[in-house]
Design a binder for these strands. Structure first.
Length: 435
DNA sequence: TCTGGGGTCCTAGGACCC
DNA sequence: TCTGGGGTCCTAGGACCC
């Protein structure tokens, strides 16, 4: 393999929404432009998104809310509980807009997409991406940055500079630039896509601090210490594409539903309710991708941040036949809870995982199988249908309870502006001028 | 007082088989 | 006292991503 970039390598763009969650909050509340904003994790526990103004105040990513309380009060930082219904819908709008510009868009995460720009090489890619950026802003209100290069990893790297260096105006095109040393030298290894905390530490010990150092490192050593994944990252930094596009997301291999509680619970009844609720959610997701589970695991634990008696446990249940039935899964899960529940602990988080997923139509039915599967499937279908039309949780299994004292906290949630007729924003003419 | 949730891939090592 | 070689499958743990 040559170290040189071949002429045939195609351009790829990475589009990344700037501070996505905070931008979503701003779209429907223009007064927030220019103000420091943070968005909280589930349960209002920690800070998972910050506007630039909040970053400048020194508020850190992943910081527990209470640690930032002082800065927040002093500088009037706006604080929001996360509102995934809103963010999911805004994400969809952004992605739909991108699809106007290329038939090949890979939705990589809620706020990022790769665009295959093969076939657009006759255009000025920088201009084209600037047009994309302006259109997304106009149609959705969301600001994005775009990096262009020969590989996904380099496009990610370019994107950082597009965002960080204001003279780039949100777009940086490194495609076809033979010598990228300046950009590699000014990127710390921890900021490379695919290099996390542990690998950064390891690399720093070897005097490898920047992307340029990494490109010049010994490939054999990289492979030995960081597996083929690490080697792949290095090759991508050299301009050799190793990561394919995934235009159609493959079915998930496991589906998890879990949550920490708004307040800890001690009784098995509450734990059971919560588990039944999570089974319901997970199996809904599973049916949406037309899978059935062979395995169900149930886990529970106390709060590891507290200095109190700790208990973590889980159980893996092999199901007699693959199933996608909520009621059947709940009944197995309840037995699981009885097995691992111990009295005397403050339970803080519980959850379930469905795994060993197989396509539903091909799942085998065992000759020992006595359940009336057809009837159960019918019930499940009706429940899904009603909940889809009337709102999730309109119909629910009694096992999930009514009081739900374990319910997640979200004291600062904005309305579902875009997905609920009752919560459409009311705008005055003045507020409607979008910047 | 107060710390998220949901995924992926790779590897080493054990179990098991011939 | 002595203790093969090679293959497959599975799982746990560790790394990463957003």
């Amino acid at each position: 393999m040559e170290g040189k970039v071949s002429k045939k390598v195609k351009p790829v763009a990475l589009v990344d929404c700037n501070n996505f969650y905070t931008s979503c909050e701003r779209v429907f509340n223009p007064k927030l432009w220019g103000k420091p904003i943070v968005v909280l994790s589930n349960n209002d526990g920690m800070i998972i998104a910050r506007s630039n103004e909040a970053k400048e105040l020194g508020i850190k990513m992943g910081e527990p809310l209470f640690k930032a309380e002082e800065i927040i009060k002093k500088h009037n930082v706006y604080v929001f509980s996360s509102n995934y219904t809103l963010y999911g819908d805004m994400s969809h709008r952004v992605m739909t807009t991108l699809e106007h510009f290329s038939p090949e868009v890979e939705i990589y995460s809620i706020d990022e997409a790769f665009i295959n720009l093969e076939g657009f090489s006759h255009k000025d890619l920088t201009d084209y991406c600037r047009l994309i950026r302006n259109t997304v802003r106009k149609w959705t209100g969301i600001p994005v940055s775009i990096g262009i290069a020969e590989t996904k990893t380099l496009a990610k790297l370019a994107n950082r500079f597009a965002k960080k260096v204001s003279s780039n105006k949100g777009v940086l095109n490194l495609y076809g630039i033979e010598n990228k040393d300046y950009y590699l030298k000014n990127t710390e290894v921890a900021d490379i896509w695919g290099i996390g905390r542990q690998y950064s530490k390891l690399l720093n010990l070897q005097n490898i601090f920047t992307a340029l150092d990494l490109v010049n490192a010994n490939e054999k050593w990289i492979k030995k210490k960081m597996t083929v994944m690490g080697l792949r990252t290095v090759l991508e930094l050299k301009g050799i594409p190793c990561i394919e596009y995934e235009y159609f997301p493959p079915a998930k291999k496991a589906i998890v539903s879990s949550r920490s509680f708004g307040q800890t619970v001690k009784d098995i009844a509450s734990v059971k309710e919560a588990i039944a609720f999570f089974v319901t959610r997970a199996s809904e997701k599973m049916r949406a991708q037309k899978s059935s589970a062979n395995l169900l695991s149930v886990f529970l634990r106390t709060n590891p941040f507290k200095k109190e008696a700790q208990y973590h446990n889980g159980v893996l249940i092999q199901l007699p036949v693959p199933t996608d039935s909520t009621s059947e899964l709940i009944s197995f899960a309840m037995k699981g809870v009885e097995q691992i529940f111990r009295i005397g602990y403050q339970y803080y988080k519980v959850g379930v995982m469905l795994s060993g997923l197989v396509p539903t139509k091909r799942s085998q039915t065992s000759i020992f199988d006595t359940e009336n599967r057809l009837k159960m499937a019918k019930i499940t279908e009706v429940v899904d249908e009603v909940n889809k039309k009337m709102g999730s949780n309109t119909l629910f299994y009694a096992a999930t309870g009514i009081n739900r004292k374990w319910r997640t906290r979200a004291d600062m949630r904005t309305p579902k502006y875009t997905t609920d007729w009752e919560q459409l924003p009311v705008v005055s003419a003045k507020e409607f001028e979008i910047i």
